[in-house]
Amino acid sequence: MTAPFIAESLGPRGKRRVAVVSAVAGAAIAALVVVAFLRLLHKGQFSDRLVAPLRLWAVQRFVLLGLLETVKAAIVAMALAMALGTLLALGRLSRNVLTRWLAGIYVDLFRAMPLILLILFCSLGLPKLGIHLQPFGGVVLALTAYNGAVLGEIFRAGILSLERGQSEAASALGFSYWQSMRLVIVPQAARRMIPAIVSQLVTLLKDTSLGSVIGFDELLRRAENTGTYYGNSLQVLTEAAVIYIVINFTLSRLARRLEVRQRRRYKAGPIVVPGGGMDLAVMGAQGTASAI
């Protein structure tokens, strides 16, 4: 699914030039692949001693159980972050100044913080405050705190993306604030937000790997341990990367599909998260969507 390239109708000379450049580029890429392959071969990276462990069921099980932890942490953190994000979005849209202010500070502060700092804090800082968490709990807490802020902004942007006429019509029909939210605004906004939410899920899933730093026994950590044990870090980490890529690529594709479909159906553009929307996934989704 490549984007249509610019100036596609070429004349005969342009076509010839493109053919030449294509041949050269193709040859260069092929040469690069061959060189990489020979390098791997030369360094004995295809030797049975290094590759055979990947075929052992015990090793596969070990790695896949790590994947299970990754997925578990991602699902739990996503669910909690959606709840927190809803609260934060409502807080930022509230008519109470203090609520708006507090939710705004939380969102700005946590979105600007590196996630790894939060994760390290959950593992090193919280015990000092008398809160002892297992690595799983620490990772989920940090992921929730961070992604809650990001999702809060997505939700808020989704709600604000609706035309004002919607809430005006709702109040003209005599709906209260909460009724119009529940029956008119949120159902429409939710549909527009789905692609951005799925993209955020991809980011969150990738971020679970940061748990390996504080001893959360997930996919990356198990791959690293396997690599240390058998001395085949290159092979095992590549395997881990492939697993992440397959999952995330599928989810990204899904997000893109949903976005295109909803564009066609509702003629609604992607939502725009204001305030220098600091998150890559949201932006990435918008970027790819506008490229279609």
């Binding site: 790997s209 990367a241 992440y244």
Partner: peptide, 8 residues
């Protein structure tokens, strides 16, 4: 893009 930064 689909690989976690830490894995890279």
């Amino acid at each position: 893009r689909n690989t976690p930064l830490l894995v890279l």
